[in-house]
């Protein structure tokens, strides 16, 4: 088999575009369009009382809802934010790649992510674990490593975040479809639809989901005003959230915050369908490693050894 053919198969297998879920999503969207058309004449009061699923929101619903959220944040924290709703780009499927030979465990990505995504102190989407050299076994990983300097000798580092699986167990688990895969491969959560049962947390093999055990409190000076409904807007208490590949940035062409913060340049990001994207070139040239590949979740996150 030629390398090109092998790569083709790899990409098809892991990131192929023949996806039943996407078909389902289209159906759901079409259904949502019909449903929202039929409910467009509802009174505003009823709408406020019974919030709607994101996929059932009309443009008018969104406009009102986003304005309400912006007003609430302004009233609470005095910060003027904008809540947007950037849509997936046609033909784009996002993939993140991380060079394990470069990661030195400095956690700049963790904190940049926290600031970008308006995370309170007790929530971090990213977890960098320290493993002994010679293994990637997580059972003995150190999570709270805090030496003066990293990397420590004899240790390797493995950052883990949402793998944006193609077959995400969390999405299957959710009883109310409050989390789903977007056409560009990002797994999102509708924070206004989640009931907080945390079954998705139990279902996630990557410890990628976080629950707001309390009302998140963020210092007004640290609030990132550039927000999106499905990503970094300030979450309500009692719902689950997670990494969204910074969709409010990436759907507007930018790189995710974690990538830009990495001082060793270990992170790569781009559209797997684009032959010239960094991630596509990485897949063509490097040895890659997928976390817990045996579970069949088909992550859109690759580790590689540069």
């Amino acid at each position: 088999m030629t390398p090109e053919a092998r790569l083709g198969e790899l990409v098809r297998l892991r990131l192929g575009r023949h996806d039943t879920r996407r078909g389902f999503l289209k159906t759901a969207l079409a259904g949502a369009a019909v449903a929202s058309a039929s409910t467009a004449c509802d009174g505003a009061g009823v709408e406020k009382l019974l919030s709607k699923h994101y996929l059932k929101l009309t443009d008018e619903d969104k406009r009102k809802l986003f304005a309400r959220i912006e007003a609430e944040v302004l009233a609470r924290s005095g910060v003027r934010v904008t809540v947007g709703d950037p849509q997936p780009m046609a033909g784009v499927e996002f993939v993140h790649a991380l060079d394990l030979s470069l990661c030195n465990g400095n956690r700049r990505c963790v904190e940049a992510c926290a600031r970008e995504n308006n995370l309170p102190d007790d929530i971090r989407y990213l977890r960098v674990v320290e493993v002994d050299a010679g293994t990637l076994e997580l059972a003995n990983a150190e999570h709270a490593y805090d030496p003066e300097l990293v990397p420590r000798s004899g240790k390797n580092y493995l950052p883990v975040q949402c793998q944006q699986c193609k077959k995400p167990p969390c999405v299957d688990a959710c009883p109310v479809k409050a989390t789903w895969v977007e056409p560009d491969g990002i797994v999102v959560v509708d924070y206004d639809w989640c009931i907080g049962c945390r079954y998705c947390q139990a279902a996630c093999p990557y410890y990628a989901r976080r629950f707001n055990f309390r009302e998140p409190s963020i210092e007004p000076s640290r609030i990132n005003p550039d927000q999106a409904y499905l990503s970094n807007r300030i979450r309500p208490a009692g719902v689950v959230e997670k990494c969204t590949y910074c969709l409010h940035r990436t759907r507007r062409g930018r790189y995710p915050a974690c990538l830009e913060a990495c001082p060793t340049g270990a992170r790569k990001f781009g559209n797997i369908n684009d032959e010239n994207s960094e991630v596509r070139r990485m897949l063509e040239r490097k040895r890659t490693y997928v976390l817990k590949e045996e579970l069949g979740t088909v992550p859109r996150f690759f580790y590689f050894f540069g």
Binding site: D99, T250, G253, R254, Y255, L259, E260, C262, P263, T264, G265, K268, F269, G270, N271, D274, S277, E278, R281, M282, R285, K286, G306
Partner: peptide, 22 residues
């Protein structure tokens, strides 16, 4: 080779547009 392909080194900016490479 890796630098040219964007596999090695820090690239920031836009994944589908202007890239600033360290």
């Amino acid at each position: 080779r890796d630098f040219q392909r964007g596999i090695h080194g820090l690239t920031i900016g836009e994944w589908n547009g202007k890239k600033h490479r360290r």
